[in-house]
Design a protein around this nucleic acid. Structure first.
Lengths: 218, 218
DNA sequence: TTATTTTTTTAGTCTTACCTAAATATGATA
DNA sequence: TATCATATTTAGGTAAGACTAAAAAAATAA
């Protein structure tokens, strides 16, 4: 059984490994976890001794298969609980992260398997992120960033890259959620801003927005 | 915000206060929490400084109003989660305790209020224990122990005093659950054992069993 | 009342997970 | 290659919450 702190480190390393795609630096982990690099060194050494990460001094950290499995399971739990909170308890998608952050550490395989069933074995969480199955595998989708679309192309919103409260609330105001159809009416080369059509409304969005929305075009 | 350890101490003191009905001794807490008395002393001193218990050296501990409120809220969460696990996830009543023991420490008033609603604002948990409302008040019932019934009296099972897996599994084997009608066909003065009728089956039960089953007669 | 047993507290350690400050390795630059 | 900035690690310390062993208070028995 792993401690809460250990699980959080594994989760952070898992995400960073995907984002940075390779070995994860001590500082990167410290940033993500909002702790000091020296604390990270302590922990990755410990995780190394437990066989959950491969850590070489000054070189960086990667998850072992075992660590990967544990991390994927924590993420699985986090995302399943988010589905529960939104689908069953009618929370709004910008309210669920902190609660799921706590629920993800409840230990019981039976619980999570029953929850999965209760929710109808969902493949994606309320932000469009894929939910790992019990073996850590997740559905791959052909999604791209809205910012990659050209003028007159359209797509369906399938997820968000960033999921801060501010961003999600912005999307709400603009009536954009998972499943919303978005058409690019205009695109400015200079700053990457766009004019898009959502339902019957058309409006301007900045590059930053477009770079944090995933759409599916096919 | 209180730590997990603090919440567990408050909960233990809450229960002991009801069982022993008065000040709670350091040893009693240590027994219940499966820790050493010296650890308990440390903790009750700390809780005392926080104003959650009133503690006097060598005299014992009681919850303050504030401590009582926190304890009742933890118990509320525990019991609501148990209802969720049994009603929604179809767990069996002897499987839910350890999981609820973890879930009860998730901090979010919004969560628990929505969960309460989702479950239809239940008054009792799957073991027949009353669920405190958000102010700590719980429904009082006129329940008595099966062992208090006389020959030919009957009652409806409304709860269990002890809820260990062994006991609950015994009840299952005998097809006794919350709502089951039980009639006392015979009672032995010597050892307090009984012969009871459950559905169409009649069988012998020991005093120990009869002293751990709550029934309602009116 | 005094002696003995039991309960409780105090004092001093341990582990986990964090911290600061100082030392050291790495990588970039001149 | 030598120097400097940055990244990382080591060393030593802290707080929470547990522990053991020893001291002190309370309860019980003689």
């Amino acid at each position: 059984m792993n401690s809460l702190a250990e699980e959080n480190y594994l989760k952070a390393i898992y995400h960073l490994q995907r984002e940075l795609d390779g070995d994860v630096s001590t500082n990167a982990i410290a940033d993500r976890m909002e702790t000091k690099p020296s604390s990270v060194t302590d922990m990755v050494q410990k995780l190394g001794e437990k066989g959950l990460v491969s850590y070489k001094r000054y070189k960086g950290t990667t998850l072992t298969d075992q660590g990967q499995k544990i991390a994927a399971n924590v993420i699985r739990k986090h995302r399943l609980w988010e589905v529960f909170l939104v689908e069953k308890l009618k929370f709004h998608w910008d309210q669920v992260h902190d609660i799921a952050e706590q629920l993800e550490h409840v230990h019981s395989e039976e619980l999570i398997s029953r929850l999965d069933n209760f929710l109808g074995n969902p493949d994606f969480d309320p932000h469009g992120d894929p939910i790992p199955d019990k073996h850590g595998k997740m559905k791959r989708t052909e999604k791209k960033l809205l910012s990659e679309l050209q003028k007159n192309q359209q797509g369906v919103c399938v997820g968000v890259k960033e999921s801060s409260g501010e961003f999600l609330q912005y999307l709400d105001k603009k009536k954009i959620s998972i499943g919303t159809k978005i058409r690019v009416l205009g695109k400015e080369f200079f700053d990457g801003s766009m004019v898009i059509l959502v339902g019957k409304d058309q409006f301007f969005i900045s590059k930053k927005i477009a770079e944090n929305l995933y759409v599916q075009t096919s």
